[in-house]
């Protein structure tokens, strides 16, 4: 069954006082099934992240529809959904991981993950249990659990970032270049983390630069070119 479907997505950025328009995505169609891992690749500035941010409603597209199979709301156009519905979906159904960790200052990795669970209205005991589980699942060094992530390396930050999103068990997880700026070893770790997410049944849509990485993990790969998908091919 179709899980996410994009029809005719178009997004330009108008910078009013410079009187300029930046063309990001034009006429994009796309759909994916539940449980799939779909990768998007393409040159910098080709509009890959714009797709993810439009799904997450960080960006407001000019035209097009983005249908999502929500557990609570059913088949829903994310562009027409109310802000309250989007806030609910972000809390329970759609996660977003970027390469940057932007969190409350002076909060430990453990607390960050716990708070992510608490925000969904579950008890502190549950949150503590879930946080421990997900942090060890993603193999973050135990010594780091009770320290502040701004001292972490890129790969460690990223794993905290994924843990914060994954602990809520979202139906759809958007990955925005999570492996950019990581060394080979950290990349390998992140790959394992993503592999584990996929095995647990999470539907994943990710933007990557690393073709090899994608070939190993993705069910389908799309390449962005001229603000739309050039080819759609199935990876092995």
């Amino acid at each position: 069954m179709t899980f996410l479907k994009i029809e005719g997505l178009k997004k330009n950025f108008q910078i009013v006082h410079l009187n300029q328009t930046i063309h990001a995505v034009q006429q994009l169609d796309f759909s994916m099934e539940q449980g799939e891992f779909v990768g998007i690749t393409g040159k910098s500035g080709s509009g890959k992240s714009t797709i993810l941010k439009s799904i997450y409603r960080t960006y407001l597209p000019e035209a097009g529809r983005i249908y999502f199979d929500s557990e609570k709301y059913g088949w829903l156009d994310l562009q027409k959904a109310s802000e309250r519905e989007i806030i609910y979906l972000r809390k329970y159904e759609i996660g977003y991981v970027s390469q940057f960790l932007n969190v409350m200052p002076r909060t430990t990795a453990r607390q960050l993950v716990e708070q992510s669970v608490l925000a969904t209205g579950r008890s502190l005991i549950e949150a503590q249990k879930e946080a421990e589980k997900v942090l060890s699942h993603f193999e973050l060094d135990r010594k780091l659990w009770d320290t502040y992530p701004n001292t972490f390396s890129g790969g460690e930050k990223l794993r905290v970032n994924i843990a914060i999103a994954a602990v809520k068990k979202p139906r759809l997880l958007l990955l925005d270049e999570p492996t950019a700026s990581l060394d080979q070893q950290s990349k390998q770790k992140v790959k394992e983390v993503i592999q584990k997410l996929k095995e647990s049944g999470t539907t994943l849509l990710g933007v990557f630069h690393d073709i090899e990485f994608m070939d190993e993990l993705c069910d389908h790969i799309f390449e962005m070119s001229q603000q739309s998908f050039k080819r759609a091919g199935a990876a092995l």
Partner: peptide, 18 residues
């Protein structure tokens, strides 16, 4: 008015953009 990340990352109004 909108979702905070949308207002900050994709501001629509000229003043908000500035």
């Amino acid at each position: 008015a909108g979702l905070t990340d949308q207002v900050l990352e994709d501001p629509q109004d000229a003043y908000t953009q500035q």
